[in-house]
């Protein structure tokens, strides 16, 4: 896959804000610890939405670490580059 097809953190933040219905500055990193609405159920919805949007499959052991927009972006890039 070419680098141009890899998701940017801005793309990830847009998806997170849509699911969490959380407004905010586009350039600010989103962190699960800071966002009340990012609860356990929403976390699953986020992971599955990412899988659907980017055509990847996360292992269960990866779920907990997908807790910031930067960590998610890095994980997506790893999967897509593999």
């Amino acid at each position: 896959m070419s680098a141009a097809a890899l998701p940017s953190e801005a793309d990830v933040r847009t998806l997170l804000r849509t699911i969490l219905r959380t407004p905010g500055e586009p350039a600010v990193e989103l962190r699960r610890a800071d966002i009340v609405a990012w609860d356990s159920l929403k976390h699953m919805e986020i992971v599955f939405a990412l899988e659907d949007q980017y055509g990847v499959r996360f292992e269960e052991s990866e779920f907990a670490a997908l807790d910031t927009s930067s960590a998610i972006t890095a994980a997506l890039r790893r999967h897509l580059a593999a």
Partner: peptide
Amino acid sequence: RLDALAARFASATRPSLRAPS
């Protein structure tokens, strides 16, 4: 709602449940 999420999560724990891509 909960059942759909739990079933989908199971596909992450048991790869045999994953739909073919």
